[in-house]
Nucleic acid binder design. Structure first.
Lengths: 303, 303
DNA sequence: ATGAAAGCGCTAACAT
DNA sequence: ATGTTAGCGCTTTCAT
């Protein structure tokens, strides 16, 4: 009978099944933007592992807009997804947090699972990396290279991930006894455009900088671009470092020194975590290691 | 009563609704790889428009593997998605085509809609660009700049999009009376890695080339990288052009001359097309315009 | 062992 | 206008 079904391309109706089993085999992932390489790679990993374990995934790009994010969460609950995965860092916004919390309580009472792939205050199982350590390591690397005037192109202000990477940078400077200079820190919004703009500001304000650490690779591309535009040579005049190691990073000119974040694995482990939890297995949060990858965009200071 | 529902965070069950209305408000999009910038931007556009019109989207990265693609189509049918959108060009494979055709017949008989955002032989409504014209225009641009030895880093061999872009290149050369040289054409698999490798091969085989046209931007990044590695200056020694205009293209070093494909709009129009069709409106295929965007990676030949 | 029936949460068609 | 009921395609329970 099963062969007959297969031969006739009979497709059992997951919708009907979902109604009775209360399991839809669908996961929702909320990202800032799927077309951002960082999130694209996470979604790809998540999708792969989910597909392997017979689950489908809804992509939801929120642009970090609280209302849009909430609207997506409501829609996902309406579709009775089995789990919601928050891929990006928490948006620091009081009203958003309260509303989200309420929604998620309802979702959980429906049997839903929530997980995060980035720093959140919520007590949900998560797969993350240590943002503070990553930023500290890279800053230390720059320090070891002899740099003292190290600028940071930071992430968006209201984002937890930004705070953590900023803290890592500050900690490394403090450890090395370098006086922190607020003028050396400029937010770049985690966009290439923003990275370029921040570079303009930094160059004007602190022309004595010798290195620029961008809190993500996408911004580092903007830094590289702007510096080249100014006729500055990298790494001769200025060293540049990024964070994430998106696949384009090694093809930047010059190839970008960066903190490798295993985005694909973050997504995969995230999928496994929620599917395991749905199967009733007890799951635990984990932290994946980061690693400095030194390429040609950074160099020892000085002649 | 409705207010009470809203206040209590009551989320009507779309699953149950789907069972009776035979509409799930879910779209499936099949892409080569969400983490590829080209597809990432398409998915983003599709998702935006779908979300606006109250539909959710399943992402399915097939890696252009026929079996994986077929498996995804089966899964999507099982989930009774309202529509399946094929974002990538047709895979030229006999057995795959037959099987796909059968599956889609079943899907249609269930009331499903199929659409494509790239060249396919299927007679489905589509939103596309003219790949031949785009490649012809760019080749002509290079020709106008005085180039005669123009290499092409082509796409994967079994892909319809590759054939079309190759044809545009060939047509422009023929129009200009330039003898085509098969040695100037090397496939690069539509990956950055492949673009770099193709460059190595081309440089060895045809050292007299003065321009390299990569059939997509992702490969152009590899070309740029490899050329820089060889100590060649762009555009002084070699002009480089791409295709797609992914958001990183203007931040390449030097900024990449390319054929602008409106990926986001492709996705948006794709979503509107299928949602309109689902609403019973009669829809028609459309072709979106491409445009040459000249940046710093190409220059007039010459001494 | 196999088969019949109830019910998941909705919508639509019906009756009041 | 309102309320009631049948049924969507499955799984699960219960009777045979």
């Amino acid at each position: 009978m099963l062969e007959a079904a297969a031969a006739l391309d009979f497709h059992p109706n997951m919708i009907a099944r979902g109604l009775v089993t209360a399991r839809t085999h669908v996961l929702g992932v909320i990202v800032h933007d799927v077309s951002d390489p960082y999130f694209g790679e996470i979604v790809r990993g998540l999708e792969d592992a989910a597909h392997m374990r017979d689950h489908r995934v809804f992509v939801c790009s929120s642009d970090r807009d609280p209302d849009r994010e909430l609207a997506y969460v409501r829609a996902l609950i309406g579709h009775r997804v089995d789990a919601i995965v928050f891929a990006g860092g928490a948006i620091e916004d009081r009203s958003y947090r309260t509303q989200l919390k309420r929604l998620l309580e309802g979702f959980r009472s429906l049997g839903g699972i929530v997980a995060t792939l980035a720093p959140h205050a919520m007590r949900t199982p998560s797969v993350t990396i240590d943002n503070v350590a990553g930023a500290r390591d890279m800053t230390r690397h720059l320090l070891d290279l002899g740099h003292r005037r190290i600028a940071l192109v930071a992430g968006p202000e209201h984002l937890r991930t930004s705070h953590l990477r900023l803290r890592g940078y500050q900690e490394a400077l403090a450890d090395a006894g370098v006086t922190p200079d607020p003028d050396l820190v400029e937010p770049g919004g985690f966009t290439t455009e923003g990275g370029a703009k921040a570079t303009v500001a930094l160059l004007a304000r602190t022309p004595d900088l010798t290195a620029i650490f961008a809190a993500n690779d996408v911004m580092a591309f903007g830094v590289l671009h702007e510096l080249a535009d100014e006729g500055l040579h990298i790494p001769h005049d200025v060293s540049v470092a990024g964070f994430d190691d998106i696949s384009m990073a090694r093809f930047a000119l010059p190839p970008l020194t960066t903190v490798r974040v295993p985005m694909g694995e973050l997504g995969q482990q995230g999928a496994h975590l929620v599917v395991d939890a749905l199967a009733g297995r007890r799951v635990r949060s984990q932290s994946l290691p980061t690693e400095i990858v030194v390429r040609a965009s950074t160099r020892r200071i000085g002649r």
